[in-house]
Simulated scan of single mutants.
Amino acid sequence: MEDYLKSANSGTVWALCAITVVIGFIQALLYMRMAKKTAAKIQLPGEIPNKAFRIGLISAIGPAMGVFIVMVGLMAAIGGPMAWLRLSIIGAAPTELTAATYGAQASGVDLGGAGYTLTAMAVSWFAMALNGAGWLVVTGLFTPGLEKLRNKMSGGDTRWLAVLSGACSLGIFGYLNVNEIYKGWGNALALIAGALSMVILVKFVVPKFPKLMEYTLGLAMIIGMFFAVLYDLAVA
């Protein structure tokens, strides 16, 4: 195990992975600059983009904590550079962990377990890359046409378009939540606690403290994770 981790954490791998991470960072900066220019072009009040940025930043805390925890586990199995790379550009921690696990199983071993050699790690890396490549191909080929399809389905009615987008979001997140419930009581408790705390915050706390509205999603995520941790400690 020490031999393959030595290769996985070599300076060459760090340098190669850094290239992709830096490109992703530059893309984020360019997107932020483009959004700022567009806001100025349409004469959008400055406080609105700033508020949107704060909301996104706070809301990302919960998911980022989960990604960080998985990244630490992946670092012990596939090396720091690749874990850093995959979770920096994809960010779907469960998906990356599953892909790495499937790669190990295809080699006839457990991820990071006995017999997990340099070859097995390479298969895990390939499985993760192949999984991510599918998303990139679909996004690159079909994203330009999705906007036309959405407008055609809405018939130009902005209200119907809002309903359609909202229904799609509810369906996606509902599907994800159901999958989490199936994983055990700890996940279910996190979901219930997060949902209830979101309702309480929006209905009772925000009317008294309106400035908390932009932090409600992040707070609900943290509360959900807190109750999940309490459950794990109680049953341990």
Score class of each variant (00 low, 15 high):
residue 111 L to I: 04
residue 59 S to R: 11
residue 109 V to G: 02
residue 61 I to F: 07
residue 31 Y to K: 09
residue 124 S to M: 08
residue 29 L to D: 15
residue 87 L to Y: 04
residue 115 G to T: 05
residue 73 G to L: 07
residue 32 M to F: 09
residue 114 A to N: 06
residue 28 A to L: 06
residue 97 L to F: 13
residue 92 A to G: 05
residue 29 L to P: 11
residue 38 T to F: 10
residue 125 W to E: 06
residue 95 T to W: 02
residue 99 A to F: 11
residue 72 V to F: 12
residue 118 L to I: 11
residue 86 R to Q: 09
residue 81 P to K: 05
residue 55 I to R: 06
residue 90 I to T: 04
residue 55 I to A: 11
residue 98 T to C: 15
residue 35 A to R: 08
residue 54 R to K: 11
residue 103 G to N: 05
residue 76 A to E: 12
residue 47 E to L: 06
residue 50 N to A: 12
residue 59 S to F: 12
residue 119 T to N: 09
residue 36 K to L: 04
residue 49 P to C: 04
residue 52 A to R: 13
residue 19 I to A: 04
residue 113 G to W: 11
residue 110 D to W: 03
residue 110 D to I: 05
residue 94 P to D: 10
residue 82 M to P: 00
residue 60 A to G: 07
residue 40 A to H: 04
residue 84 W to N: 00
residue 20 T to I: 08
residue 86 R to S: 10
residue 73 G to A: 05
residue 24 G to H: 00
residue 19 I to C: 02
residue 21 V to P: 01
residue 115 G to P: 00
residue 99 A to W: 09
residue 29 L to A: 14
residue 23 I to G: 01
residue 97 L to Q: 01
residue 29 L to Q: 12
residue 120 A to V: 02
residue 115 G to C: 00
residue 69 I to Y: 13
residue 98 T to E: 12
residue 100 A to R: 03
residue 48 I to F: 10
residue 78 I to Q: 01
residue 35 A to N: 05
residue 87 L to N: 02
residue 112 G to F: 00
residue 35 A to E: 14
residue 23 I to A: 00
residue 58 I to D: 01
residue 62 G to K: 00
residue 35 A to F: 08
residue 20 T to H: 02
residue 67 V to P: 02
residue 128 M to D: 06
residue 51 K to D: 14
residue 95 T to E: 06
residue 102 Y to I: 14
residue 33 R to F: 09
residue 70 V to F: 06
residue 97 L to Y: 03
residue 19 I to F: 03
residue 108 G to V: 06
residue 77 A to I: 01
residue 49 P to F: 01
residue 113 G to V: 10
residue 106 A to R: 12
residue 67 V to R: 02
residue 79 G to I: 07
residue 28 A to Q: 12
residue 83 A to R: 00
residue 93 A to L: 08
residue 102 Y to C: 11
residue 25 F to D: 11
residue 25 F to N: 09
residue 111 L to E: 02
residue 45 P to N: 12
residue 93 A to P: 08
residue 100 A to W: 02
residue 63 P to A: 15
residue 27 Q to K: 11
residue 43 Q to H: 12
residue 108 G to L: 08
residue 37 K to T: 14
residue 86 R to C: 11
residue 54 R to C: 15
residue 113 G to H: 15
residue 58 I to G: 00
residue 79 G to W: 00
residue 46 G to P: 15
residue 40 A to G: 08
residue 119 T to W: 15
residue 65 M to I: 13
residue 128 M to A: 09
